[in-house]
């Protein structure tokens, strides 16, 4: 074993593995209100890019709410689907990064973006089927004193860096640190990411998938769960709960 052995950076999940941190999004409850989008941007120092760049699709939102139309007027219906990094157990973004900036955390079972390694090839974004990654095309201005609200626990990304949802890893760490100091396990709901914490409809639930008693595990087992683009075999850690569609009342 040499000192500079390259660690295994690509996740090697088997479909039977449950992972560690997981999220459940109840689409029957999501009202599309965008509170998660705002909460995420505020927590994670996400830059705003302005009207023109936003129009070019360069918005930096780590979570976006997709809106789908179904049918035609007057029989038209809508559904909302918040999409963020799915923290794939078998992630397409990981093997394509030439500098190991996009890699898998084996301890937390999360996809990592190591900002100081990233050289901006954007291969990972190209390979992400969920379009969950955003790229800093410029150093976006954050005029003084707006920078006062920057969260010191989250790196401020510069131009040329790829970024994406981290499941608010700084909050996971804060909870793990607190738990370790008190000699206990992280409690269910203790490490909520900003989106789950804000969601007024409580449509986003976060927690340990390897704890069968956690709220998130119970919801995964509820029978309504689907994974996004499951057929690609990416083994996402985010589960969407269906419901509502096709439910019709005739009096």
């Amino acid at each position: 074993m040499t000192e500079h052995q390259i660690p295994e950076v690509k996740a090697d999940f088997s479909p039977e593995e449950v992972g560690k941190w997981g999220m459940v999004i109840d689409q029957d409850l999501c009202t599309g209100c965008q509170a998660c989008v705002a909460a995420c941007a505020m927590e994670n120092n996400v830059s705003f890019v302005g009207e023109e760049d936003a129009g070019y699709g360069r918005g930096m939102h780590w979570v976006r709410i997709e809106r789908f139309w179904e049918g035609e007027y007057p029989k038209i219906s809508t559904s909302f689907q918040p999409v963020m990094c799915q923290q794939c157990g078998h992630a397409p973004c990981e093997p394509v990064c030439p500098v190991f900036a996009t890699m898998h955390s084996e301890a937390e079972h999360l996809n990592m973006q190591v900002y100081n390694r990233c050289i901006g090839t954007r291969y990972c974004a190209n390979n992400c089927p969920y379009q969950a990654r955003t790229f800093n095309w410029y150093d976006y201005e954050r005029p003084d004193p707006l920078n006062n609200q920057l969260n010191p626990e989250v790196t401020v990304r510069r131009r040329g860096i790829m970024e994406k949802c981290t499941f608010c890893i700084q909050r996971i760490r804060r909870a793990e640190d607190a738990a370790a100091a008190e000699g206990r396990e992280v409690m269910d709901g203790e490490a909520d990411p900003a989106c789950a914490q804000a969601c007024p409809a409580d449509a986003i639930i976060f927690g340990r998938l390897d704890d069968p008693e956690s709220r998130v595990s119970k919801q995964v087992r509820s029978g309504r769960g689907v994974k996004l683009l499951e057929e690609l075999g990416t083994l996402p850690q985010v589960t969407y709960l269906k419901g509502g569609a096709g439910y019709d009342r005739n009096g």
Binding site: S105, E106, M112
Partner: peptide, 12 residues
């Protein structure tokens, strides 16, 4: 070691 040399442990 798994936890201690994991990227997520120190990188944010």
């Amino acid at each position: 070691e798994t936890k201690l040399i994991d990227c997520a442990t120190c990188h944010q």
